[in-house]
């Protein structure tokens, strides 16, 4: 039984491979919807490219369906089998990145970067060498502040640190 289970696990899960073509089909359908009433100049390229994409995806689906029918592949909707070897650390790292994007406006570039760097480095390394990581986070965010905000005067979100430093520089 366990041998059978292992064997089954080796088989590729076609559902994972379907994500990109499904995304392509959904997006193309939406795109077509936006150009229905448009002049021909807006349509010609998309209709050519989109139709070819539909055609290739259909071929791909047929091929995969065939593979599942012949028991050469599986089709299962299970989180860890959808994207092979997607681990908890990776999921956590992606969530931290989303958090960084959401909080960068609230906290300002520098503080958000320090928090993001420190928390993600700690997550990826299970909390070892915390002092080094903290120092490195501050240094890298500092380099970012000097290069992006001071030298290139980029309009990055500003928060407590930027405003305090600005007052200080004045």
């Amino acid at each position: 039984m366990s041998e059978k289970k292992t064997q089954k696990n080796i088989k590729p899960n076609v559902l994972g491979e379907m994500i990109i073509p499904l995304f392509g089909i959904l997006f193309t359908s939406y795109y077509f919807f936006t150009i229905i009433d448009s002049p021909w100049t807006a349509q010609v390229n998309a209709f050519i490219v989109g139709s070819i994409l539909f055609l290739i995806c259909t071929l791909f689906f047929i091929r995969k369906f065939h593979a599942v029918r012949l028991n050469r592949a599986v089709c299962m909707l299970k989180y860890d089998r959808l994207l092979p070897a997607m681990r908890t650390r990776q999921t956590g790292f992606i969530i931290l990145t989303i958090g960084y994007l959401l909080f960068v406006e609230l906290l300002g570039y520098t503080l958000a970067t320090i928090i993001f760097l420190f928390s993600s480095m700690s997550l990826l390394d299970s909390g070892r060498k915390m002092a080094t990581k903290f120092a490195l986070s501050i240094i890298m965010a500092g380099v970012g502040y000097v290069v992006f905000i001071l030298l290139f005067e980029t309009r990055l979100p500003e928060g407590f640190i930027e405003k305090t430093l600005q007052e200080g520089l004045k």
Binding site: E105, E153, R155, L156
Partner: peptide
């Protein structure tokens, strides 16, 4: 070059 002093320019949604 960019002489603007960024006092009080809060950014929200990337838009000041």
């Amino acid at each position: 070059r960019r002489s603007f002093i960024k006092t009080g320019a809060a950014a929200a949604g990337g838009l000041m």
